[in-house]
Simulated scan of single mutants.
Amino acid sequence: MIRHIVFFTAKSPDNIDEICKGLELLGTIPHSTHFEVTRNSKLDQISNEVDVVVYGEFADAAALQAYKAHPTYAEATRRVRPLREIRLSADFEAKEKAGH
């Protein structure tokens, strides 16, 4: 399983709701096994710059690529890009815990 995590900062706090709304479109793409968009709770004592987090799980790299190639992905990008400052992304193979 591939875990896909993306962090966004908003150009303005006034943009956060619209960023979330645009990113929620991604949840309609059928290739993820789990998908969430949420505001950062900003509970960390050291760093709270991130405003919005996208978290998705994909069966494999091919499913993640299909997700990124979907037309809805391009539409969400078109809506969100003008509103966000920074976008940081990480993809990694999930490791199962022993006994699971």
Rank of each mutant, 00 (worst) to 15 (best):
N15V: 01
E57L: 14
T72S: 07
E49L: 08
R81S: 08
Y55I: 00
K68M: 13
I5H: 03
V6N: 07
Q65G: 08
I86Y: 15
S89E: 13
G99K: 05
A10M: 14
A61R: 10
T72H: 01
I29W: 00
K11A: 12
P82Q: 06
V54S: 04
A74I: 02
R79V: 08
D14C: 03
H31Q: 09
A76F: 08
T77E: 02
R39A: 05
D14Q: 13
R3P: 05
S41K: 10
T77I: 04
L43H: 13
E96S: 09
K68T: 09
E18F: 06
G27A: 04
A90E: 11
C20F: 11
A10D: 01
V52Q: 05
E49C: 07
L83R: 04
L83V: 01
K97F: 09
S12Q: 15
T38C: 14
R79W: 01
L88R: 10
K95V: 04
L23R: 09
A59M: 02
I86C: 10
T33H: 03
I5M: 15
F58S: 04
R79L: 15
K42I: 01
G22V: 06
D14H: 13
E96N: 05
V54Q: 13
A10Y: 14
V50G: 11
M1A: 08
I29L: 01
L88P: 00
Y67K: 05
P13H: 12
L25V: 10
F58W: 13
S89Y: 03
A76T: 08
F92P: 00
T77K: 11
I16L: 10
L64M: 05
T72R: 13
K95A: 08
K21E: 14
A69Q: 12
S32R: 00
F8C: 07
V52I: 04
K11L: 15
H34V: 00
I29R: 00
